[in-house]
Design a protein around this nucleic acid. Sequence first.
DNA 1: TGCCAAGCGGACGAGATCGTCCACTTGAGC
DNA 2: GCTCAAGTGGACGATCTCGTCCGCTTGGCA
Lengths: 223, 223
Amino acid sequence: MVGDSSRIAGQDGLRADARRNRQRILAAARSVFAEHGIDAPMATVARRAGVGVATLYRRFPTRDALVRAAFAQQMDTCARALTEALADPDPWRGFQRLVETVCALQREERGFPAAFAAAFPDSTGEHARARERAERDFMTLVRRAQAAGALRPDFHPSDLVVALLSHCGLVTALPGDRAASRRLVAYLLQSFRAEAAHGALPAPSALSLRSLPLAAGGSTGHA
Amino acid sequence: MVGDSSRIAGQDGLRADARRNRQRILAAARSVFAEHGIDAPMATVARRAGVGVATLYRRFPTRDALVRAAFAQQMDTCARALTEALADPDPWRGFQRLVETVCALQREERGFPAAFAAAFPDSTGEHARARERAERDFMTLVRRAQAAGALRPDFHPSDLVVALLSHCGLVTALPGDRAASRRLVAYLLQSFRAEAAHGALPAPSALSLRSLPLAAGGSTGHA
DNA sequence: TGCCAAGCGGACGAGATCGTCCACTTGAGC
DNA sequence: GCTCAAGTGGACGATCTCGTCCGCTTGGCA
């Protein structure tokens, strides 16, 4: 019984119809979460996907698992943005684009901000390794941008969390108001510039960057 | 029967025991909302207040009414901060203190941020008059601070909403992390300074300031 | 002290959501 | 085509929350 997978077809161990249903559930989840928030009833997701609740629960035993899987693609985009930022020869431009990309995602993908904020406190997830790497990468980016004299010297890596979570809150409070979101991003980026450093800042947060959901691992979320 | 108030004792038309209960409910609501968020069951509030649910519903027919009343004092503090800011001979210092006061309130009073954000979309409340005045006052403050060359000329009154709501989101996502909150406030205030105006900003939000919950009227909230 | 309207509390029915269980269906290999 | 494990759907009991109803209590005034 154990290890005998000769009968299963897909590479993910799912039968063709099951894999199809899984995709429909994820699409439905994104749509429902965007419309009603991530607290929408599971049954609503199941109905929109055209499957029974049991099927939904079998694939995603908890709401959290469903949320993560539904927005794994967006999380991946965040992780990719970090890689691209590091690859940019101009570290400030990389930094700027990283922040803008993540914020644009939060702004455009309804439901994602809530998923983003919800995923945040979980620093003990199974993606610890990917997160550690993201943390290290981001610190490298910060150091480079500071060495280039573009990023203010007192910028602390945890300030990224501050920026992203506050932006998250803004787009949650004012969904659809793109101007407000863009305005905040512009203000924050300006104040991160070296030229903006006038007085001393209060002490940075003790937040571990480890909990940053920038790199959420593969796009499957299927354990 | 109508208009005969000869038998009622308090100036608010409530019997002494009822007035006492009302206060206990408000205290309990603040405590429960701080602990479990403003979506906590009404019955929990009633239990903590030591009253029956019927008593709670009689005083506050909707959760919204309870939330408003529970945080009316904090709203008043916001309104007072605006008045004081206008009275300050240094308009920038007034502006700065206004933002810091409101953000400190959001930071320190657990539950208030949620109430603040929840109260926000309601621009049609019965406090329209007070709000209009607050809006006018704030615009005066902005104009003065800009004339003094302290506030950047492209600052738009709706940017206050952007700042307060994003801060709101931050403290909601990271309750207890005062350093993060202070850091965001410092960054935002720096980027609002005239010296920080480097490039052009994206267009401001079309938000009406009318919806700003800065002035929520009297401290009673009892209609 | 007595009256009575204002005030009170808890039981209760309605409605929503959760997550499981089980009998039926179907895809994939032979 | 046949077999059967994987997959499915919806009914169901448990739990929670809401807001009202109604019989009892009490504060304030005469």
